[in-house]
């Protein structure tokens, strides 16, 4: 039966890579009905598929909209698993709070990062756009995330990243902070006291997993 299980998990993996959300969800549903462990479905099919998506993107073989559709398919499968994961006390590999910083209303990149983070096995708390530093702080205190991710598109709102980092550090938040967005780079991240920068969504997932100490980081 082991071979059959592998084949079935491969089918879920393939559904994600074919951007077929409905099929991914249905196959996950069938697999849970057979009694396969949720954690195994998550790790060996859904997260494995998103790892492949990240690799293909890094190699320039997959384009952003394709990555987004794969992430949506992965999420459809994850939604089936979510209540079962809660019931079995299975935990996400970590928690990340994300948001676009104060006075910046751009969310396309941040949303993509959020979906890819979920695809990477993290619990994502998305604070939305135009998030002032004190809302990041409140979320840090409420959710105790492993990582906080700050996004900005405008050069004029980049300073609000520094303000947010300063406020979080000022109250002793000791998790990791990462930044991203079109005008941001590694030097800027270092200059404002963030722990890291990623140039794209799969890179952000790799960095977050590295911070958390997850496998394959």
């Amino acid at each position: 039966m082991a071979e059959d299980l592998d084949t079935r998990l491969d089918a879920i993996y393939d559904a994600v890579l074919a951007y077929e959300a409905g099929r991914a969800a249905e196959l996950v549903r069938q697999e849970t009905a057979r009694g396969t462990g949720c954690q195994q479905i998550l790790t060996d099919a859904l997260i494995a598929a998103m790892d492949e998506v990240g690799d293909q993107f890094a190699e320039g073989r997959l384009f952003v909209p394709e990555m987004l559709m794969a992430a949506k398919a992965m999420k459809a499968g994850l939604e089936v698993l979510r209540p079962l994961l809660s019931a079995t006390d299975a935990k996400p590999i970590g928690t990340i709070v994300i948001g676009t910083v104060h006075k910046d209303l751009h969310d396309i990149g941040k949303n993509l990062v959020g979906m890819m983070m979920e695809g990477g096995g993290l619990k994502v708390i998305d604070l939305g756009v135009d998030v002032p530093p004190d809302r990041f702080l409140a979320a840090a205190q409420e959710h105790r995330p492993d990582v906080i991710g700050l996004s900005a598109l405008l050069t004029t709102t980049m300073p609000n990243m520094r303000k947010t980092v300063d406020m979080l550090r000022g109250v002793g938040y000791n998790g990791r902070i990462m930044v991203g967005g079109a005008p941001v780079n590694a030097a800027f991240a270092e200059a404002i006291g963030a722990d890291g920068f990623a140039p794209d969504a799969p890179g952000a997932v790799k960095l977050a997993r590295k911070f958390i100490g997850a496998a394959d980081a």
């Binding site: 384009f63 952003v64 990149g109 079109a182 794209d200 969504a201």
Partner: peptide, 9 residues
């Protein structure tokens, strides 16, 4: 244009 390969503007 959004560069479909990298997401950069």
């Amino acid at each position: 244009c959004l560069d479909m390969r990298s997401g950069r503007s």
